[in-house]
Amino acid sequence: MNIFRLAGDMTHLASVLVLLLKIHTIKSCAGISLKTQELYALVFATRYLDIFTDFISLYNTTMKLIFLGSSFSIVWYIRNHKIVSRSYDKSQDTFRHYFLIIPCLLLALLVNEKFTFKEVMWAFSIYLEAVAILPQLVLLQRTRNIDNLTGQYVFLLGAYRALYILNWIYRYFTETHYVHWITWVSGLVQTLLYADFFYYYFESWKNNKKLQLPA
């Protein structure tokens, strides 16, 4: 494992911790898209089908369990927790899951590394992760007052993706036969989706102003 990959995983972990902190301590999920969180839960459930069949490392299994556990518990909190669910504004979070899930599923059936259930599900999870942030980005645009934790959460998610690109470049030059078009192209698309957000995030940081995305 290289430093970019580890930094990417740690950034991803930090994003989840920031979101859990908001939910647990502040008891609020204001500005958080349940749609995006549900898509992430689906992403991890379909990608980590190998958790009990292929052992890679203790690190790998632990991280998979953390991402599975945290994504499902976040969804549970937003939907069912007495106090947290009150801060969820359903009327703003209107993105339709199906617009993302169905095209990703069709693409996974057509473009995959092998036409088996596990491989199609893996490709599906890669495609879905690439676009799963869209409901969250739409919600951010509609939110006039983006609180710091929400801004940091999305920033950390974007940073995680950018670090994964550096990881792939590093692996490409240091490992033999390391070529993975499915993850590379989807990962690039995923990172580009954050470009606009990054721009406004850094602007607000530079000018010491509250983060606000133009409608």
């Binding site: 190998d50 890679i56 490392s57 790998n60 893996w122 490992e175 033999t176 036969h177 390391y178 070529v179």
Partner: peptide, 10 residues
């Protein structure tokens, strides 16, 4: 481990 395996990524 297989060096060309992308499935070791999360």
């Amino acid at each position: 481990t297989d060096p060309s395996n992308a499935k070791d990524e999360l």
